[in-house]
Amino acid sequence: MGGQPVTELERINCHHNYTEQEKHFGKNVWLSRKGAINAEAGRPGLIPGSMGTASYVVVGKGNALSLNSSPHGAGRAFSRSAARKRFSGDELREAMKGIEYRDTDAFIDEIPGAYKAIDQVMADAADLVEIRHTLRQIVNVKGD
């Protein structure tokens, strides 16, 4: 095949459950981020929505009051078991229209409606991160 080789422009490695030593308010502290990413000034990150909604490539603003942290994703509005009781396979298929995915009721607990609205999460995080790119799904690959 012809054409130009694809080159990597940037790699974002973004943990959201970890502990590390950092300096905040003039003190060395152990900071645990559970469901949060490091959003120090200039640091790139990824904030995903659900399997059927947008995800965002962001850069941290370094908000000291948040300990340079931001949300790592949409977060659940329904637990997995509550989502399985609340939503149906038909609702999952409707929510995933236009996105290639493995059509199985095994993923009902991952339906977009089981998560908080990512656009609201991003609006709430406006003081923490700047959006650089919006990503839209065309395919979703998930194991059982």
Rank of each mutant, 00 (worst) to 15 (best):
L92P: 08
A41M: 14
R80L: 07
K61V: 01
E94L: 14
D90G: 01
S50V: 06
R84K: 14
G45F: 11
S79H: 11
D109P: 09
G98V: 00
G52N: 04
D90I: 00
E110P: 06
A64D: 14
K34A: 05
F107A: 14
E110V: 04
S79I: 03
A39T: 01
E91N: 04
A41I: 11
S32L: 02
A39G: 00
G89L: 15
P71Q: 10
S50N: 08
A74Q: 08
L67A: 13
S55T: 09
D103I: 04
K61W: 06
V58Q: 06
G52I: 01
T104G: 14
A95D: 10
D90F: 01
E94N: 13
G89E: 13
A83C: 05
A54R: 14
S79A: 06
A106D: 15
D90V: 05
V57R: 05
G52A: 04
S69Q: 03
A41P: 07
E40T: 04
A83D: 05
E91G: 01
Y101G: 11
R102H: 15
T104N: 15
S88T: 15
G35D: 14
G49W: 10
E40Q: 09
L65M: 03
G73C: 02
S88L: 08
D103S: 12
L46I: 11
T53Q: 07
G52Q: 05
S50I: 06
G60C: 07
S70C: 11
A74H: 10
A54Q: 13
S69C: 04
I99Q: 11
A106E: 13
K61D: 06
A74G: 12
G35L: 05
A77V: 02
R93C: 14
S50D: 15
S79M: 07
F78Q: 10
S79K: 05
E110N: 07
K61Y: 05
D109G: 07
S81P: 02
G45R: 09
A82G: 02
F78N: 12
E40A: 14
S81R: 09
F87C: 14
P48H: 13
I47N: 07
S50C: 10
S55N: 09
S69P: 12
P48A: 10
V58N: 08
A77Q: 08
E94I: 04
E94S: 13
S55W: 04
K97P: 09
S69K: 00
I37W: 02
A106G: 09
R43F: 04
A82C: 00
K85M: 03
D103F: 04
K97R: 15
A36M: 15
A54H: 13
K61S: 10
D103E: 15
Y56D: 12
R43T: 08
G89N: 11
D103P: 12
F87M: 12
